[in-house]
Design a protein around this nucleic acid. Structure first.
Length: 739
DNA sequence: GAGTTTGAAACT
DNA sequence: CAGTTTCAAACTC
């Protein structure tokens, strides 16, 4: 590690002596990514190292499963150690970890070479034992990349190592894996998803249900972390991966990555990392930017078929994988005539995701089992035709996704309306199949939910004259562009969820965090915003000032009461904080589950910086109500977990996120970003039905701003207000003075 | 499953 | 930008 002593002329000898500096110097010889290959480099870069980071920070669509684990586990378990790690520069839990990893790696790399994996870094932070084992596993075979990711994941938990390996080696074999979750590490860190082996999932699900407390937090997050599995229901043929499933799947699917690809990933990563690392201070920012950027790229490459085509040059590797592995699967699924052509449901990363759905997923549906299928197969996922949502959206989306998942499931469960003509599997991402039934729009207008969600219509759709398929890619894209030209936000998530949402929801069902609002606001007149006609209600969010509804009775939050609600929330928050588990939730069973999960969070309340959202999305409408009720959603949690990662993301994302929030939400959000560190500490506890019980808000709680967990995270990153909770969240490593 | 209601999207 | 029409989802029966 330390070749501390290189005498260097210069006042900054100390600095130069630093391993990092040395490392950098050593790195210099490494050829920087070629411009021509920039695209590749980017992807590669992403895939391996950056991806994790990016995923952590920004990846909107991808709730990097890893991160969740990392965050959670790290926070819970390892942070303490990490904090000590000298290397660790970065602070925050998940994110910080990622950062650290990078640096560490770099440092290590000096001695070792570029091949060094994050493992090392993780080692620093992580427990030696687990790490040691971890480091061994994936690295050699997978290349640094896989190992790194795996490591990261593993860092959270030593167990993961196996998982990672397994996942890498056997995509399908996941089932055999006992581990709570598998980590399918993808080449792209972003893509990296934690897939819970079916068995594992089942178990995990059971565990989550049963063991909740002990494991719940982990398991849930992990499971959920899997990305966002959007598991609408066990039955549902489609499970949607909010995250970049395919990329993952592809990578996995090709457990045997072409060496080239692997190497490429490795190299670029290192380089990238190096670049990023150089200014430690800048690291976060750059990474954010990069990660975001990269993600956007990746998505395109992975998910946007067409886009991919356009950008193929850039994302060759990803494309390859995608094409090879993913496509086939998708096709398998898609069998229908007109739709046969349609791209198989491929998981689409958060692009164009609609965050609308916030409902909680019923336990039943939560069953992770399907999840595996989803992950492994990703077959069902509708292919996203693509657009990559802006990074800022992504972050939001990720949250939303989780919520969405919940919502959907919730709908199914709560509404239980057998009828539900369509089950929209909305990840929130919009990646999921919407099962549209368009007749005249040709599925090329926003009327079409599939189109609006940025996904091709798939078999489940009953549309007529559908042009929203892979064959008509050009048409779809052109149409999309036209629509976007008119309304840039046309494909943006209708409902924006900020971290606040979770917390707020927890406080009171009626209250909807300002952060989570319908973008444009509804214009309901007869539905009183109590039916799904209302997009706000459908999205599980309260009506906001932007709404023009009449007679608003939105159970998630009435328009007029918004301000008050925030105030009230603060008060209530106090109470709630006292009783995290108390729930208003009607569904006890669900609550039970959550509570179990919450229990862990409870700790978090004090310490856990990591935002554990077990939350059901938004306050759910009364159980009786058809509306999406939050049923226990493991996925939701998982997604949440993903959210937990969000902090990391948020860190990186911050700038963009801020902008986005400002754009969409308004100042408030930005404020939150600026916001109090307190939010960081906030743990989101979700009551199954309802709304999440507001996690204890350590510091503050009250201010709506503070409430937003993500916001907190974001804020936290820059400044680490130290809270007991923060400590957890924050990496002890974070010791580094924030740049 | 058919028909109605509803509100967003699209159009003028 | 406002008003109207079109559209498909949500809902009811």
């Amino acid at each position: 590690m330390d070749t501390p002593d290189r005498p260097r002329a210069g006042a900054a000898a100390g600095f130069e002596d630093s391993p990092v500096f040395n490392f950098i110097n050593n790195l210099s010889p490494i050829p920087p990514p070629k411009p021509s290959d920039s695209a590749h480099n980017v992807q590669l870069f992403k895939s391996s190292d950056l991806a994790p980071v990016s995923s952590i920070f920004a990846s909107p669509h991808v709730p990097p499963t890893k991160e969740p684990k990392l965050l959670i586990r790290d926070d819970s378990v390892q942070f303490a150690q990490e904090s000590h790690s000298p290397n660790s520069v970065r602070t925050r839990t998940g994110t910080s970890s990622s950062f650290r990893l990078i640096r560490c790696r770099n440092i290590v790399s000096e001695t070792r070479n570029i091949t060094c994996n994050l493992n090392e870094a993780s080692i620093d932070s992580l427990d030696d034992a687990s790490h040691s084992s971890e480091s061994k596993l994936p690295q050699p075979t997978q290349n640094g990349v896989g190992s790194e990711e795996a490591d990261k994941n593993q860092h959270a938990d030593g167990k993961d190592v196996h998982e990672n390996q397994l996942s890498e080696q056997n995509d399908d074999e996941v089932a055999t894996y006992d581990g709570g979750y598998m980590i399918t590490h993808e080449l792209s860190g972003d893509m990296l998803t934690l897939a819970v082996p079916i068995e594992a999932e089942t178990q995990s699900a059971n565990d989550t249900l049963n063991t909740d407390n002990a494991y719940s937090c982990k398991s849930l997050p992990n499971d959920n972390s899997n990305g966002y599995y959007i598991q609408n229901s066990a039955h549902e043929p489609h499970h949607y991966w909010a995250g970049p499933v395919e990329g993952v799947a592809v990578d996995k699917s090709t457990p045997q990555m072409p060496p080239d690809a692997l190497q490429l990933h490795l190299m670029p990563n290192d380089q990238a990392c190096n670049k990023l690392n150089e200014p430690s201070d800048y690291m976060p920012i750059k990474q954010n930017a990069l990660s975001q950027h990269l993600r956007g790229t990746r998505r395109r490459s992975l998910f946007n078929e067409k886009a991919g085509a356009t950008s193929k040059g850039v994302n060759k590797s990803s494309d390859r994988h995608f094409a090879s592995s993913t496509t086939p699967k998708c096709k398998i699924n898609s069998s229908d005539n007109s739709k046969s052509l349609r791209t198989p449901p491929c998981a689409l990363p958060g692009i164009g995701l609609h965050l609308n759905a916030l409902a909680a997923i019923p336990k039943e549906k939560m069953v992770p089992q399907d999840t595996q299928l989803i992950i492994s197969q990703c077959s069902n996922l509708p292919c996203h035709f693509g657009f990559s949502p802006p990074p800022y959206e992504q972050s939001i989306i990720s949250d939303d996704i989780a919520q969405t998942t919940n919502i959907v499931s919730a709908e199914d469960a709560s509404q239980g309306s057998p009828k539900k003509k369509r089950h929209k599997f909305d990840n929130g991402d919009g990646t999921s199949c919407k099962k549209c039934s368009c007749k005249k729009s040709k599925c090329l207008k926003l009327y079409c939910e599939c189109f609006a969600a940025g996904v091709y219509c798939t078999e489940p759709c009953s549309c007529q004259g559908c042009l929203n398929n892979h064959d008509n890619m050009d048409t779809v894209l052109s149409t999309r562009q036209q629509i976007e030209s008119r309304n840039p936000l046309a494909f943006a998530p209708k409902v924006i969820h900020t971290s606040e949402t979770d917390q707020e929801l927890g406080d009171y069902p009626n209250k909807t965090p300002a952060s989570a609002r319908h973008k444009r606001g509804c214009n309901c007149k007869k539905s009183s915003c109590t039916k799904k006609y209302c997009e706000c209600f459908q999205g599980g969010v309260g009506c906001s000032v932007s709404c023009r509804c009449e007679g608003c009775k939105n159970t998630f939050g009435q328009r007029e009461g918004v301000v008050l609600s925030s105030v009230e929330e603060s008060k209530l928050a106090l109470e709630e904080n006292a009783c995290v588990k108390e729930e208003k939730c009607e569904n006890d069973t669900q609550l039970v589950i959550y509570q179990a999960t919450d229990s862990a969070p409870a700790e978090n309340v004090l310490t856990a910086p990591v935002v554990v959202d077990c939350r059901p999305l938004a306050a759910l409408p009364p159980a009786s109500s058809k509306k999406p009720r939050s049923s226990t959603k493991l996925t939701g949690h998982s997604s949440r977990l993903g959210n937990s990662q969000a902090p990391l993301k948020s860190d990186i994302m911050l700038p963009s996120f801020k902008n986005y929030t400002e754009m969409v939400l308004g100042d408030k959000t930005s404020d939150t970003l600026k916001g109090s560190s307190s939010t960081q500490t906030s743990v989101k506890v979700v009551s199954p039905n309802k709304k999440r019980v507001s996690p204890p808000r350590i510091g503050t709680g009250l201010s709506p701003i503070c409430k937003s967990g993500r916001k907190l995270i974001l804020k936290s990153i820059p400044s680490f207000p130290s809270l007991g909770g923060d400590v957890n969240n924050e990496d002890p490593k974070s010791k580094l003075p924030a740049p």
